[in-house]
Design a binder for these strands. Structure first.
Length: 474
RNA sequence: GCCCCCAUCGUCUAGAGGCCUAGGACACCUCCCUUUCACGGAGGCGGCAGGGGUUCGAAUCCCCUUGGGGGUACCA
């Protein structure tokens, strides 16, 4: 049977790290086995679901390169199937209506808590007599639908990450609600566990790959598969991504949405690479810098860790810088251009010139956004910083700059420029370092940056070196 | 509270009983390259949570302790 997996985010927030990493694992597994990677939007929580979040999820997945294979399934459009399944369970007696009011359930939980017991539904309406039911209905009570969960049973599955798993029915909290409260002659909106199982069945999902936080759901869902007469899929519960404090990464941890990373100037290559590294260890031959395609060729759950993995900015930064350093000028320029525009920098230079600038800046970038500040001295007239101003006041610096300006050749030539700096130092009677720093200050307005001669050459090409040297004098 | 899961350098990890004097990567430190900042290169620091077993032999298997995490919805 061919592999079919899915990622099933709910559009109640932007695509974030945890979901994306789960998507990565699903995608890798599908590609590794020549299977299909599907997408289902779980938008049954009407209160919290937003179209904008659906868009964010699709955009994010595409950006990462996680292409899905079939039409997107929207859970909200599958309510007929859900209702049918619930009706089936109701008809077979595996589910029943519970008329307990919220107040009654609340009181029940209070009592349990007071007695230091685990909160759970006490199955009080599991065996209602027809008379009791009639009484509740006459009262006008609404009802939820509950699925029977026998306390005595044991639920077993072989987890692709964790090995043999075992769960006691008694630890599942009593008969579970599968349909929201509704008038007693109707079936309310389906709840998560029911909808997931029905949809996974309909979509022919063979392997459910999701975060460790779903383990308890898996036990409940296996019961539903059985009740609905469907074979249960394989399960893989991946370790969670943890924040700095070692807790499950959540939206409250600041930068966690994929769009945030993109905005900061992280590349899809680095982000997807890093997500693979959180919890999965690639075989040695792959190294640790690789594309999704390379990873897909060797991916397996045998090398997925069980313990949660802390998110580490340093490592992501390093990966991203590696990606950026390896980019050629043309690619980098295309990536940088929108950011330059956004920052209001002068982008009127010829494309080739911008590409050379990008190539010059490349090795010092960690994120694309760094390319804005670092390009600033080249694009538009720079403001001299304090250190530069001070440098221009250094004994002999002005004389040296004057000499440089005077003897500046029409066409820039590397060795000639180098010789000119030496000559200027001699003429002004200062060390060469003074001249180099002085020229740098005059040209770029700051004392640090890429290679001086290459920077100069670039500015010369833009016709900027003369004016800048001149304005630094005087 | 109850249930479940997990545990190797600061972080991500390799490790399937002898190949381990525990390997790699990031971070950190030093040096080299460079008359700047980076890049790059070469070194260095640093770990099997603790205690019991099993075994000729344990980071690896078992138990306990401790620590951490997840779950406990008419959310997904």
């Amino acid at each position: 049977m061919s592999v079919r997996v899915r990622i099933a985010p709910s559009p109640t927030g932007n695509l974030h790290m945890g979901t994306a990493r789960t998507a990565v694992f699903n995608w890798l597994f599908a590609r590794r086995h020549g299977g299909r990677f599907l997408l289902r939007i779980e938008d049954t929580d009407r209160e919290r679901s937003r179209q904008a979040f659906t868009d964010s999820i699709l955009t994010g997945l595409r950006w990462l390169g996680l292409d899905w294979d079939e039409e997107i399934v929207f859970q909200s459009r599958r309510s007929r199937d859900h209702q049918e399944a619930i009706a089936t369970l109701l008809a077979s007696g595996q589910a029943y209506r519970c008329y307990a009011t919220e107040a009654e359930l609340h009181a029940m939980r209070e009592a349990q808590q007071a007695a230091r017991q685990a909160p759970r539904y006490d199955n009080r309406h599991r065996h209602l007599s027809p008379r009791q039911v009639a009484a509740f209905r006459k009262e006008g009570r609404h009802a939820v639908v509950r699925f029977r969960i026998e306390d005595g049973q044991e639920i077993l599955w072989q987890d692709m990450v964790r090995g043999p798993m075992r769960w006691q029915g008694a630890d599942l909290g009593g008969d579970m609600v599968i349909a929201r409260r509704a008038p007693a002659d109707q079936i309310g909106e389906p709840l998560y566990n029911l909808a997931v199982v029905v949809d996974d069945m309909a979509m022919g999902i063979t392997h459910v790959i999701r975060g460790e936080d779903h383990i308890a759901n898996t036990a409940k869902q296996i019961l539903l598969y059985n009740a609905l007469g469907a074979p249960q899929p394989s399960f893989a519960h991946t370790p969670l991504i943890l924040n700095k404090e070692g807790r499950k990464l959540s939206k409250r941890d600041g930068v966690t949405s994929i769009a945030d990373f993109q905005a900061l100037g992280y590349t899809a290559a680095a982000v997807s690479n890093y997500m693979c590294l959180l919890g999965w260890s690639p075989p040695k031959k792959l190294g640790e810098r690789f594309g999704l395609g390379d990873a897909a060729a060797v991916f397996g759950f045998d090398r997925v860790n069980k313990a949660g993995a802390r998110f580490d900015w340093d490592k992501l930064n390093w990966l991203n810088s590696q990606v950026l350093h390896a980019m050629d000028g043309a690619t980098l320029r295309d990536a940088l251009l929108p950011r330059w525009r956004q920052a209001g920098l002068d982008t009127n230079q010829p494309q080739a010139w911008q590409e050379r600038l990008s190539a010059l800046l490349g090795p010092s970038l960690v994120v694309l956004e760094d390319g804005v500040e670092q390009a600033r001295p080249f694009l538009g007239t720079p403001e001299l910083d304090d250190a530069s101003r001070a440098q221009l006041q250094v004994e002999g610096c002005q004389a040296a700059l004057g000499y440089v300006l005077q003897h500046r050749p029409r066409t820039f030539e590397m060795s000639a420029a180098k010789a000119l700096l030496t000559a200027a130092a001699q003429a002004a009677g200062v060390r060469k370092g003074v001249v180099m720093k002085g020229v740098r200050a005059a040209l770029l307005g700051c004392l640090q940056g890429p290679d001086l001669l290459l920077s100069w050459e670039l500015l010369h090409g833009a016709g900027e070196d003369g004016p800048r040297l001149r304005s630094a004098l005087g």
